[in-house]
């Protein structure tokens, strides 16, 4: 029965600085005993302890200064910075994770590779978000601790931030319409030709009786990319449509845009890693006319695609980041 009082006192004092624990414990014990009748029952003890309040709260009142990791004044800046840093870390982890895992897959079949890429990338994103959270939180905790020590600093109205430009989120109608038209026309044409095996990039030879065509791409391999391409075209069309409808960036447009960008980056890297994408006969033919061997042609081409894919990946990352900044930036309304 007395045990409950001791447990209560312990639960309060363990939350206090060590040099205060003994004294506060003695005070608290004396006060509790004063509040109890002679030979108290368990009910009496419970009543008194409930009256004194939760140990956590009582300990807070005993502590002279409020404690916090990040002070209330810094909370807004903290959340804002956190948002930005999380987006940057997330996008970079997403894209670099995808590329890394596509380039070095351990699984042997396509489904395996897709699963591997998906889950490895997710885990990399989670790790990177956690580090972003930890870094930002530590920095702000540091700032808070420093500020509370220095009390109030003088502030200069000159340092107030500039007003943001109005309506940075707007998307022009022309841009959306052009985007929509182009993606529909070129998308359909491209899919059609891919499907009909009529990609007219190739080696033409004028024979005596007929044209001999040696196509550049290996048609069967090229066809496997059609579904991705269709998805990407559909996404572009949906995105342009939504842009036209709402006239400014919002979360759903930004999401579709991100998915679309990432899809193109993935497809490009798959493109680059796919062997026998180019018809070997084509290189052989090309080598026959020049001093360069077929292997050199093939190697140069795949290096070129890799370079292009990396370029697209970097540009795409920058594009995704700027899209999200635009989307999440609070739109300033003129105060009248």
């Amino acid at each position: 029965m007395k045990d409950m009082i001791k447990r209560y006192v312990y639960d309060v004092t363990r939350r206090l600085p060590e040099n205060q624990r003994e004294e506060v414990g003695k005070e608290l014990l004396a006060n509790i005993n004063d509040m109890l009748p002679e030979n108290p029952s368990e009910e009496d003890i419970k009543k008194v302890l409930v009256e004194l309040g939760e140990p956590r709260i009582l300990a807070t009142s005993y502590r002279q200064k409020p404690r916090y990791l990040i002070s209330p004044e810094w909370m807004d800046d903290y959340f804002q910075t956190l948002k930005i840093v999380m987006i940057v870390f997330g996008v970079i982890a997403l894209i670099s994770g995808l590329i890394e895992n596509i380039l070095n897959p351990e699984a042997v079949n396509v489904i395996g590779i897709i699963f591997e890429v998906f889950f490895k990338t997710i885990s990399e994103i989670v790790q990177s978000l956690f580090s972003a959270f930890a870094i930002v939180t530590l920095i702000f905790a540091g700032i808070s601790a420093h500020q509370s020590k220095n009390e109030k600093c003088e502030w200069d109205p000159k340092n107030l931030p500039e007003l943001p430009k109005e309506n940075v989120k707007k998307i022009s109608k022309v841009e959306s319409i052009v985007g929509l038209t182009f993606s529909i026309i070129f998308g359909t044409l491209f899919i059609y030709f891919m499907w009909r095996n009529q990609v007219y990039i190739g080696w033409f030879e004028n024979g005596d009786f007929e044209h001999v065509v040696i196509p550049f791409f290996n048609a069967d391999v090229l066809k496997t990319f059609i579904p991705f391409y269709i998805i990407s075209v559909v996404l572009t069309i949906v995105e342009s449509g939504l842009k036209l409808k709402s006239g400014h960036w919002n979360v759903s447009i930004a999401t579709i845009h991100t998915v679309e960008q990432i899809l193109s980056i993935i497809v490009l890297f798959f493109f680059a890693t796919t062997t026998n994408l180019v018809n070997p006969t084509f290189w052989a033919e090309a080598a026959a006319y020049t001093e360069i061997t077929a292997e050199q042609f093939s190697e140069g081409f795949s290096k070129g695609i890799y370079g292009f894919a990396w370029f697209v990946a970097v540009m795409g990352s920058i594009d995704i980041l700027s899209t999200w900044f635009k989307t999440l930036k609070p739109n300033r309304k003129e105060i009248k």
């Binding site: 005070e27 608290l28 004396a30 006060n31 309040g53 009142s61 002279q64």
Partner: peptide, 28 residues
Amino acid sequence: QYGYSLLQDLEDKKVNIEAGTLYPLLRR
């Protein structure tokens, strides 16, 4: 006065202050 006698003293004079507030206040 000791903590509890002060609490009762104030209560008799119709000034209600919670025990969980008074004791930390005395310490402060």
